[in-house]
Structure formats: C-alpha cells, structure tokens
Amino acid sequence: MDTAAGVEARLPIRSDMDLVWVRQHVRHAAAKLGFSLVDQTKLVTAASELARNTLVHGGGGQMETAQVTTGGNGGLRLTFSDSGPGIPDLDRALSDGYTSGGGLGMGLGGARRLVHDFTVETVPGSGTSVRVTSWVSRPPRLREDV
C-alpha cells in the first residue's frame, strides 16, 4: 500500500564512529518529518541497536533511509544490511535476553518494540537485512501485542 520515494541516503557502517553518524542522520531525518521528540528518540535508539548489530554481527554493512507515505501519512524507513554470517536462529535472536555480542541482549527484540513495522531477512552464510519503518502522527499506536 505504501509508496517509497526511493532511497534518500546510504550510510556505511564500518566503525563505531559510523554509528554516531547513523544516529545523527536518523535524528535529523525524523525531526524533519515531524516526529515527536519521544518518537525521534525511539527511532534513533532502534537505529543505534540495529546499526551495532550490523557492525558487530554482520561485520559491517550499510544503512539506507527512505521517506515513505501511506494514505497521506509520512514515515521513515531504515534498511540495515550486511553480508555477514546471517542469523541461524531468528526466533531466538528476537527473544529478550539473547545476546551474542555484548549489550544487554535487547538488540533485535528491543529494536522491534521501538518501531511500527519490522522485518528481517536473513540467509545463513550470506547476510542479513533488517527493515524498520516508523510513522509520524499516527498518534498513540494501538499495538496490543508484544
């Protein structure tokens, strides 16, 4: 349903300095789109988790950002991709407390809670791509799961 206006930026994720750029970039993009302060913070935090996953587990990769709209509602879509070893057990990786590279084991599962849409594609041996989208002004979301 929603239409993406193409890729707007592509940022490399090769070092922990790159994580800083990723956070700043997402912050600016979300602010420009009119995200509230709390929603900006959630999205930037999710981006930070996912970018760190890309760096630590994927051996580096990139983030692409795209503005998306659906029914007049704007959003920001972030795609993190790497060509690392992939995630062997996705369900386990998404569950809380699971960690293989430091952090409090909140990386993937935690990031999922901070965004509206979340999809992972992973192929063992050839890489992982995580795509998340958050929407502006969908005021309080009614998500009863999690």
Partner: peptide
C-alpha cells in the same frame, strides 16, 4: 476523496490525542 479522507483521519487523530 483521498484528500477528504486523510483530513478526516487527521481530525480523528487530533481529537483522539486531545481526548487522551
């Protein structure tokens, strides 16, 4: 129609937020 619908949606969202 799209425009009208999204106006209504925006209004509903605003009102919902105000109510909250």
């Amino acid at each position: 129609m799209q425009t009208a619908l999204s106006e209504i949606q925006a209004l509903t969202d605003r009102q919902r937020l105000q109510l909250l």
